[in-house]
């Protein structure tokens, strides 16, 4: 990831020959961008804060959030990655236990 040309802003991965030979733009100064430590934590946090209990990745491909389902309550379905959700109302409104 982390070598950015100080001139044109193009980024090069670790060990890229361009870092030694110079950028396409002719510049040979690069700014090293340290790995964002926060990112992994954010990803894990996001996973825990996911509101959906089921994510439909594609037809026939599902990801289940077992923790969320076990917590009980409503079944929220996320449709792919585009921020669309479906809430299963019967599970939300279910008050009485199955007898």
């Amino acid at each position: 990831m982390p070598h950015r040309c100080t001139e044109c802003g193009k980024e090069y991965m670790d060990g890229d020959m361009a870092i030694l030979q110079g950028c396409e733009c002719g510049n040979n100064k690069f700014l090293y961008i340290p790995k964002q430590k926060g990112r992994e934590v954010e990803e894990i946090k996001e996973q825990f804060e996911r509101i959906e209990s089921v994510r439909i990745i594609a037809p026939g491909m599902y990801e289940l959030n077992i923790e969320k389902l076990l917590e009980g309550g409503e079944v929220v379905i996320a449709l792919q990655e585009d921020g669309k959700y479906a809430v299963h109302l019967p599970s939300l409104l279910r008050k009485k236990k199955r007898s």
């Binding site: 089921v54 026939g60 289940l64 389902l69 076990l70 009980g72 079944v75 199955r98």
Partner: peptide, 22 residues
């Protein structure tokens, strides 16, 4: 058939977890 099975299996997980209440 595989897609139908996957869908039913997903519904099955939800059903299994709901049973825990009882």
């Amino acid at each position: 058939e595989a897609k139908r099975r996957a869908k039913e299996a997903t519904e099955g997980v939800i059903e299994a977890i709901k049973w825990l209440d009882d």
